[in-house]
């Protein structure tokens, strides 16, 4: 009975396992291919000039310059929208976990936030632009920040919410029982417990803010100048990629690939950094 027999059942198991391994390899290699394509086409065109200069005259016909304005613009938009979303989401997440006592309402609000997270950013972009038209505003860094903040707000609130929800009350009680003051509890215990989740949420939102194109297309606009004021149009990296690729000049498109490479690296650094930092910070937290 215990001989290794190749029954129909064992064969099924083996075949399915192979198929699943095949699927995994397909998925991973396709995703690897993307990274490889971006690196192999972007890296050769990457020059110091690209990341240190703004577009010179005739940049879009192959003349000199770089996309520093777009890199900075994206970072500004990412930072600004993350900060704005953070400021708005903290009280909401706190209220959701302290004062909204009916779990029925809590659950409804959470459901709505999860649903909102999927709304396409082009919808927010179009909304932002039509509001700006109504009030006679032109595209600006500030408008971009506000709209991107709307895009990332739901995920930010939900991330904070998860962090707060998992906050063990035992922990604060234990710390209080040891004779620590409440301020010390807040500073050393609560913050340390919350930090990993908080950092992850912030960095992921930042990554999304940097990379989103459809929401800034109309709201932040585009310019070849450096972003200097909240009220002037601001270039962003995804749009820089898009515009460079839509020119007929090979040299410009090559720089578009390099810009895509810069964007990818930026997002990967933020995303991997988020994971690493959250891992490092959660060494002393209670799961």
């Amino acid at each position: 009975m215990q001989r290794p027999t190749l029954t129909r059942r064992n064969l099924g198991e083996m075949v399915m396992k192979r198929i699943m391994q095949g699927a995994l390899v397909l998925v991973m290699s396709t995703l690897g291919l993307i990274v490889w394509t971006i690196i192999s086409r972007g890296l050769p065109s990457l020059t110091w000039e690209m990341v240190s200069q703004t577009p010179k005259g005739g940049f879009y016909m192959g003349k000199g310059g770089g996309v520093l304005n777009a890199i900075l613009g994206s970072i500004y938009i990412g930072l600004g929208s993350t900060m704005l979303a953070l400021i708005v989401s903290l009280p909401i997440a706190l209220a959701l976990n302290t004062y909204v006592q009916q779990t029925r309402w809590q659950e409804r609000i959470r459901l709505m936030l999860d649903v909102l997270w999927g709304i396409p950013s082009i919808v927010y972009g179009a909304f932002g632009f039509t509001v700006m038209l109504t009030f006679g505003l032109r595209a600006s860094l500030l408008a971009g920040i506000v709209i991107v903040a709307l895009v990332i707000l739901p995920i930010m609130i939900r991330a904070m919410d998860e962090v707060l929800r998992r906050m063990p009350t035992d922990l604060t009680h234990a710390a209080l029982a040891l004779g620590t003051t409440r301020f010390e509890v807040a500073r050393h215990v609560v913050l340390r417990q919350m930090l990993p989740g908080l950092v992850t949420a912030i960095l992921l939102a930042f990554g999304r803010g940097i990379g989103d194109a459809a929401s800034v297309l109309f709201t932040a606009g585009y310019t070849d100048r450096m972003p200097t004021s909240l009220f002037s149009p601001t270039a962003t990296l995804p749009l820089a990629v898009l515009f460079q690729l839509s020119t007929p000049f090979e040299a410009v498109r090559e720089r578009g690939y390099a810009s895509a490479f810069i964007l990818t690296i930026l997002v990967l650094v933020v995303s991997i950094g988020a994971r690493w930092l959250s891992h490092a910070l959660s060494r002393y937290t209670i799961k």
């Binding site: 215990q2 290794p4 059942r9």
Partner: peptide, 17 residues
């Protein structure tokens, strides 16, 4: 008398038994 951990033993047959 048959070792269930012997190489090649069908684990599902062991669990059926």
């Amino acid at each position: 008398g048959h070792d269930v951990y012997a190489p090649g033993v069908d684990v599902t047959a062991v669990r059926k038994r």
